[in-house]
Simulated assay, not measured.
Amino acid sequence: MQKIPVNLAAPGMKLAKPVTRENGMVVLAEGLELTEGIINKLQSMNVERIVVQGNPVDMGDAGNSSWAQKSERLDYLFRRYSRDKWMFRVKGFFREYFNLKAAAQKAEEEAERLAQEQAAAEAAEAEAAENGGEA
């Protein structure tokens, strides 16, 4: 089970927990398989995070983003509060937030890289078609 930002959801993932409104009304049931339409609907409803089965998304734990580095630094920052249960919870909230931000940052970078690759491939195809058309 993994809590992920909706913008990292992909068709085929299954909900591990139901999606509910603020008043507790269930919008989507546990076990529902996500489709592109459902993901778009969640985004239009301003749902920020969902809980999916398994661990399908790399949440940026590799330490290659500033958000991942902030998450790793939490143990040092909270070192004086190791016996305080409330500060332990606060640290957990920060860690979850930083991990979600790191995953979103990584997904955005990957999407940008794929878009650049696709644009380069389309430009190469257009150039090849142009050169082939002149021959």
Rank of each mutant, 00 (worst) to 15 (best):
A62F: 01
V26S: 13
L114G: 00
N46Q: 09
G31N: 09
R95I: 00
P56A: 11
W86Y: 13
R49V: 04
G60H: 04
G24M: 03
S65H: 06
Q105C: 14
E96V: 06
P5V: 08
N46T: 08
P5E: 07
V52N: 00
G60L: 11
N23K: 10
I50L: 07
E117F: 06
D84V: 09
F94W: 09
E110W: 09
G24F: 05
K41H: 10
L28A: 06
E48T: 12
E72M: 15
I50P: 09
A123W: 05
A102D: 14
N46W: 00
V90L: 15
K106C: 07
A68N: 08
G133H: 05
V6Q: 08
G12K: 03
G37L: 14
V19P: 08
L100F: 03
E127A: 03
L15K: 03
K14D: 01
I38H: 14
L34T: 10
E48F: 06
F93G: 13
N64R: 14
G92P: 01
I4W: 01
E33G: 03
K91L: 15
Y97Q: 05
L114V: 06
V19F: 11
K41N: 11
R95D: 09
F94A: 07
L32A: 11
N99V: 00
I38E: 12
D75P: 07
S71D: 11
K85Y: 09
E134K: 10
G12R: 05
V27A: 12
R89D: 15
A128E: 03
S82G: 00
N131W: 04
V26W: 09
V57E: 05
L28G: 04
E112D: 07
G60N: 02
S66E: 14
V51M: 07
P11Y: 03
V26P: 02
V6W: 05
M45R: 13
E112C: 07
K14C: 03
T20N: 00
K91N: 07
Q2C: 11
E112N: 07
L15V: 06
R83W: 07
Q116F: 04
P18V: 02
N55C: 04
L74I: 14
K17N: 06
L15E: 02
G60S: 11
K3A: 11
M1Y: 05
E30N: 12
E134F: 04
E112I: 04
M87G: 05
A104R: 07
E130M: 00
A107D: 15
K14W: 00
Y76P: 05
N131F: 08
N23C: 10
L28Q: 09
E96T: 09
K70G: 11
P18N: 12
A121D: 14
V47W: 02
M59A: 02
N99G: 06
R79I: 12
M87P: 00
L34A: 04
A115D: 15
R49S: 04
L8I: 01
A111E: 12
N99K: 12
A10F: 03
M59Y: 05
E108N: 13
G63M: 13
F94L: 14
